[in-house]
Amino acid sequence: MIEKKFGYGIIGCGTISKWHAEAAAATGKYDLIAVTDVRKESAERFAEQFHCMAVDSTEELLKRDDIEIISICTPSGFHATDAIKVANAGKHIIIEKPMAITYEQIDDILKACKDHNVKMQVISQMRFKENVLKAKEAIDSGKLGKLVIGDVSMKYFRSQEYYDAGGWRGTWKLDGGGALMNQGIHGIDTLQYLMGPVKSVFAHAKTLARNIEVEDTAVAVVEFANGAIGTITGTTSVYPGIPRKFEIYGTKGSITLVEDTITLWDIEGETEKIKEGDQERKLDSASNPTNFGIEGHIMQLDDMAEALIHNRDPKVNQYEGKKPIE
């Protein structure tokens, strides 16, 4: 039996759009039909590479009856406007992080999706990683006992040239924030995915090294609804950049992940133990924003297709995508 292929389009042909096109192809469940970008030459170059059409505007893309799902790969500040247009056209949405940069924008997206019965998948690829799921199962099943501490450390390096190369980066209007909103959003999402809902946060945020409007360094103390506490550390200003690290500690066990590699697994009563230093460092984007694999995007785009086939919600729908922004 031949599986249904969904007509697929992309808005925004910048760096991340390549991950979406390649992931869609890898699932075997999408047929990339057309793309658009405010820079016509970018859309045409992308279309030539991926053997699809380049159209002149989002509106033209949305008029096509042969497109059912659209990926939004524009700068963060345009996500809400684009998502609402796509929802109003009755197309299903795959959107890069963050799904929006203000609460008002999020509420408008939620309403548009509900009004037009549209499904949305927010890219949060860490949730689909095998070792993250393994850690979550251990936590949710109570193997770590009472959770005590949950930390994430994201000490990245982004040069001034990185910010200058994209006029939207590091601005309140189009980036919506800095080290936490842009680079740190996946880590924040993964921490709350593992530890559970957040009750309260207080933080210090500063611009210490880069000539940008938003923060390049922030540290937050978090209280989780289950009573545990933790920290969120994020910066884009430390050389050479250190891989993201999650540390989860309970009364009966501890788990540490560096990116999606388990570097510490020590649970009371279990013979399987992993000590720090036992694992090799894997691909990470600590100093290069494009240095990450495509596997997470493949799993999320496949989940979106399966959600439509079986009429269920995607695993990271708009309500899940809202959580790390809150």
Rank of each mutant, 00 (worst) to 15 (best):
M1P: 14
M1A: 15
E3Y: 11
K4N: 02
K5R: 14
Y8K: 06
G12F: 11
C13A: 01
I16W: 12
W19S: 01
A21I: 07
A25Q: 11
T27W: 04
L32C: 01
I33D: 05
V35D: 05
D37L: 08
D37P: 11
V38K: 09
E41T: 15
R45M: 10
F46W: 04
A47S: 09
A47G: 04
E48Q: 12
E48K: 07
Q49K: 14
M53C: 14
S57E: 02
T58F: 04
R64H: 11
D65P: 03
I72R: 05
C73Y: 04
P75D: 06
A80L: 11
K85V: 08
K85Y: 09
A89Y: 01
K91T: 08
K91H: 10
H92L: 02
E96S: 04
P98W: 01
A100F: 03
Q105E: 15
Q105K: 12
D107R: 15
N117I: 08
M120P: 02
Q121W: 11
V122W: 04
S124I: 13
S124D: 13
E130P: 05
V132W: 06
V132N: 06
E137W: 02
G145C: 11
G145K: 10
K146Y: 10
V148N: 12
S153A: 12
M154D: 07
K155F: 08
Q160I: 07
R169C: 08
G170K: 08
T171C: 04
G176T: 06
G178Y: 03
M181D: 02
I185A: 03
I185T: 06
I188C: 13
D189L: 01
T190F: 08
L191F: 05
L191M: 08
Q192D: 14
K199F: 09
F202R: 14
H204P: 01
N211T: 07
I212R: 08
I212F: 00
V214G: 07
E215Y: 03
V219L: 12
N226T: 09
G230W: 07
T231D: 00
T235N: 03
P240Y: 04
F246R: 00
E247A: 13
Y249A: 12
Y249K: 15
T251P: 00
T251K: 01
K252E: 13
L257F: 06
V258K: 03
T261K: 12
L264V: 07
I267F: 10
E268H: 06
K273W: 09
I274T: 10
G277D: 07
Q279I: 03
E280R: 02
L283P: 07
S285K: 02
S287Q: 10
T290C: 09
T290V: 12
T290G: 11
N291P: 06
N291Y: 04
M299L: 15
L301N: 03
M304T: 04
H310R: 14
P314S: 12
Y319M: 08
G321L: 00
G321M: 00
P324G: 08
